[in-house]
Each structure stands twice: as C-alpha cells, then as structure tokens.
C-alpha cells in the first residue's frame, strides 16, 4: 500500500484549497479533516471531540459515510457514528488500515489542522506511518491571522460587541505555536521525508508547483493528473455536509471550492512590520514570529 501523505500547517494556510487539489490526484485519496492524530484510539477521538468540539468529528463521519455507504446523508453519517462507537477500542492505526482498505491503492491524504496543535500529534502519526510524507505548507503570518480573524468573526454573535483577540487567542500566537511544533517535528525527519513550501508560491502557478510536489511524492506528473488537481470541487467532500456533519473542512472552501486563478495570482505578502489589524494596541509581530517568517521566506 502507498504511504500516506500528511499536510501540516496552521489553519488558514490555504490548506483546504491546496489540500483539495492534491487530494484530486488520481493516485491520491483526499480525505476531509479526520482529526484523529491527537488520540491513540477511536474512543479517545470520540471522547475529545464532543460538546463544543464535536464539529471536529464531521470530517471523519463524512469520510466513513462516503466509504461505507457511497453517500453523505444524515442517515449514513449517523451510521458512521455508530460504527465508530462500536469500535472505540480500535487503535488509530487500525482505523487508518480500515480506511486504506476502503480506498484501495490510493495514497491517503489528510490535512487536519488539529495535527499541528501539538508536537505529539505529528509524532504519533510518524509512529503509525514511519515512512509517511509530510508536506509543510506555510503562509505569511499576517495574512494567515487576518484570515483567522475573519473566520472567527463570521461565527461571532452579531448582537455582541466585536470580539477582541485575547492573548491566548491571538492568531499570531496560534500561528507561531503551530509553526514551532512543525519545525521541531520536521527537524527530526531524515532528508526527503518532509517538503516545506510556501502556499503563495504554489498558488502563483499551481500546475508548476503541484507537479514538483508530485515529483517529490513519486506521483504521476502527466497532464491528465495535473488537470484533475485543478478541480478540487470534484471531491465528494467539497461541499457542505448533512446537518450532523456540516463541515469537515473550511466552510468558505466548502461553499466555493472552485479555483479562482485571477484572485489567487494576486496574493500579497505584506511587510513583516505592517499594521496588525486584529490588534488594537498598535503592536507589531513578535521577534519570534518574524524569525520564523523569514526562515519561511517572508518579509
């Protein structure tokens, strides 16, 4: 069986769009965000993704519904939930093996942002798949944070005052923590097991850079394969799901998963000392953030 591919990046790093494209390669099975790397067993996943965090289970439910029943409906999603509850003792490795059995000889591809919230999550994936490939996607910290705040505000109660970023919710801290986790983890990998690439670079010319990613992964770079990657909207998961599993990916992407090249080719990379619109104290990026951003090719 092919080794899986994990896209590791903080949320709001164009992971949905780029992950959606990679997931459409004919030799790849692009999964929704299955968010299982933080637990050892299915039971652990179910215990942690509940209550206000239950939305995190949507990707896995949609995946299993699709694989088991060929469609994602309220009924099939509920069946998937039952299936999971009956196998709470399964290890994550067993779960992955089951998914792999369902998709055949395609390489599993996951891009769950939860993976990078903790170093151990990535280490756990590596333990299960010692030869997995890790694609480290970066995006400029300022535009990442602006995107995060826009999404956060879109979910905020319109009747309440606009939320201010508390220190522990400051999107810059989230970006930096995730990147710290990723760089510490990837430093442990042998040469070739991880590829770091700027999302802005990929989106400036997707066929050119997706072909390079395919070359790294040993996937076909034939024109029909690259053309398929230009249509993330063809994924069965590139739409809003049934009520019990609405998302499993970026809601904005699910509402409009078609590539808009005219917009993507004008992505800006602001100066690292630019005004931070989510801060009301006039503060600038922390030196630690700037250090990482420059390492990734920003500023």
């Amino acid at each position: 069986m092919p080794e899986p591919i994990f896209l590791i990046a903080p949320g709001r790093s164009y992971t949905s769009l780029i992950g959606g494209m990679i997931g459409q390669h004919p030799q790849v099975y692009g999964m929704p965000e299955i968010s299982v790397s933080h637990a050892d067993t299915i039971g652990g996943v179910l215990q942690t993704l509940k209550g206000p965090l239950e939305y995190g289970l949507a990707g896995l439910l949609r995946l299993l519904a699709q694989l088991h029943d060929g469609e994602q409906t309220e009924e099939t999603v509920n069946a998937a939930r039952q299936w999971l509850m009956q196998r709470a003792h399964w290890s994550i490795a067993e779960l992955f093996a089951h998914i792999q059995d369902q998709v055949g000889d395609k390489a599993l591809f996951d891009k769950s942002p939860r993976t990078v919230t903790n170093y151990d999550n990535m280490a756990r994936l590596l333990q299960v798949f010692p030869n997995a490939s890790f694609l480290h996607l970066t995006r400029h910290p300022i535009t990442t944070c602006k995107s995060a705040m826009a999404l956060r505000n879109s979910f905020a109660d319109a009747n309440k005052p606009k939320r201010r970023a508390r220190i522990n919710l400051d999107p810059e801290n989230t970006w930096r923590r995730a990147q710290d986790n990723i760089t510490r983890f990837t430093a442990t990998l042998p040469p070739g097991q991880c590829l770091r690439v700027k999302a802005e670079m990929i989106l400036s010319d997707p066929p050119k850079y997706l072909a390079q990613i395919c070359e790294w992964l040993g996937l076909s770079t034939e024109p029909d394969a690259l053309e398929a990657m230009m249509h993330p909207e063809n994924s069965p998961y590139a739409s809003i799901g049934p009520p019990s599993a609405l998302y499993g990916n970026d809601p904005n992407f699910l509402k409009n998963p078609v590539l808009d090249m005219s917009r993507l080719q004008n992505i800006a990379e602001p100066s690292l000392d630019s005004h931070l619109p989510w801060r009301d104290d006039g503060g600038a990026l922390a030196p630690e953030t700037i250090r990482l951003a420059r390492q990734f090719g920003y500023g």
Binding site: P191, G192, L195, R196, V197, M201, I202, K208, Y209, Q212, I213, E215, W216
Partner: peptide, 13 residues
C-alpha cells in the same frame, strides 16, 4: 542540502 520547490524546478540534493 534541503529538498525544496523552486521556480527552477524541484531541487533534490
């Protein structure tokens, strides 16, 4: 060196 994507193609050491 480090494997990477570049405008000049994928660079593999």
């Amino acid at each position: 060196g480090d494997l990477r994507c570049t405008p000049d193609g994928l660079k593999v050491p």
